[in-house]
């Protein structure tokens, strides 16, 4: 037993952190939220160059072979820096496209970052409310699949009611998210068949795992920023961070994040459905707890869209319910035990 990241994995995290810090992600996120994808696409290429998407693509398709632990390491950093775009959807699509079919030839460009890919969750994946929107055309009874950032992505995928993977021909009008950087787009139904179901088991687990990792990174960033804030903000002549009520709220956030992190790495290592559901619930709840503390301890400034804290606050909210709500994950945990 040696349940620790090795030197190479730690160096990978550090290099992503350095690259994303230098990229100045807050300005990129704000442009992305307004529908200007240029900065986001440039950042996407750098994320691809760092090898992140290749971690979900088989070696024979131009990738590094599926490496869940490294994916978790990468997604924690992507979350810490609030990187926009269909990150989870792209790596999940990679896992789906490895199924025999037409789609496989799309993988090299996906790994290289030239094909930004989004994916609508299958209509029946998550009980009780499918992640869907009213149909964009109005001429069918089935709700349209809803995908993240379809207006930015090159490849729009959805899994239909039969479990087949299809490439949508286009998308409807963008629907806003509580996280302005997440632009939700209804996909046109049908489209070219890329792979026949049943699709590879574990692809949806990968969506949960990477969403959880992203959420944990969001939580870490919120804690870091809030600690810095309460150290420098003074009231009654002393830093507010010297008050016990403030300290204890942040200590609780730290405890939640500290316990969620190994859950996430454990899930990456075992791939066990129990562990994956536990990690999704654990990491997203820890991030949300931290977001609530961050909002409270920043006071009114934290409640403004203008202040950069909002980029992480709103993401903690959106990721909590994306790819499996805490309730759905808790139900999955009980099914597995």
């Amino acid at each position: 037993m040696r349940f620790l990241l090795d030197a190479e994995q730690r160096a990978f995290a550090a290099s992503l952190d350095a690259m994303l810090t230098a990229a100045g992600t807050p300005a990129v996120v704000r442009a992305w939220s307004a529908g200007d994808h240029r900065g986001g696409r440039a950042l996407w290429s750098r994320v691809a160059d760092a090898g992140v998407f290749a971690l979900a693509v088989p070696e024979e398709d131009g990738g590094l072979g599926l490496r869940p632990v490294e994916l978790v390491v990468a997604f924690v950093e992507l979350g810490r820096h609030a990187v926009p775009g269909p990150l989870v959807e792209t790596v999940t699509a990679a896992a789906l496209l490895t199924a025999p079919g037409e789609g496989r030839e799309l993988l090299p460009a996906l790994a290289a970052g030239t094909t930004m890919t989004t994916l609508a969750p299958p209509p029946t994946t998550f009980h009780p409310t499918p992640h869907t929107a009213p149909p964009p055309t109005g001429d069918t009874d089935a709700p349209a699949p809803l995908a993240l950032d379809g207006d930015a992505a090159d490849l729009l995928l959805h899994v239909d009611a039969r479990g087949d993977l299809r490439r949508a021909a286009g998308h409807g009008r963008v629907r806003g998210s509580l996280d302005p950087a997440r632009r939700l787009t209804p996909l046109l139904p049908g489209g070219a068949l890329l792979a026949q179901g049943p699709l590879p088991e574990g692809a949806l687990a990968l969506a949960r795992l990477t969403t959880a990792a992203q959420a944990l990174g969001v939580g870490l960033a919120l804690l870091e920023r809030t600690v810095a804030h309460v150290r420098q903000r003074t009231q009654f002549g002393v830093p507010v961070g010297s008050f016990q009520a403030v300290k204890h709220r942040l200590a609780d956030a730290r405890i939640a994040l500290d316990l969620a992190h190994p859950l996430l790495l454990g899930a990456a290592l075992t791939g066990d459905p129990f562990d994956v559901a536990a990690a999704k619930a654990g990491a997203c709840e820890a991030a949300y707890t931290t977001a609530r503390a961050a909002l409270q301890l920043h006071g009114a400034i934290g409640y403004t869209a203008e202040y950069d804290l909002s980029l992480w606050l709103t993401k903690a909210v959106a990721l909590r319910t994306a790819w499996g709500t805490p309730g759905e994950c808790r139900a999955a945990v009980l099914r597995e035990r």
């Binding site: 037993m1 620790l4 129990f274 654990g282 309730g327 808790r330």
Partner: peptide, 28 residues
């Protein structure tokens, strides 16, 4: 009580893995 029972299972596994990580750091 479904959610709270699930949280007990999740918490036990989290503490298990947290302890394994801490033990690994200690051994290192």
């Amino acid at each position: 009580l479904r959610g709270r029972v699930a949280d007990a299972l999740i918490g036990a596994r989290a503490y298990d893995l947290y302890t394994r990580a801490a033990a690994s750091r200690f051994l290192a």
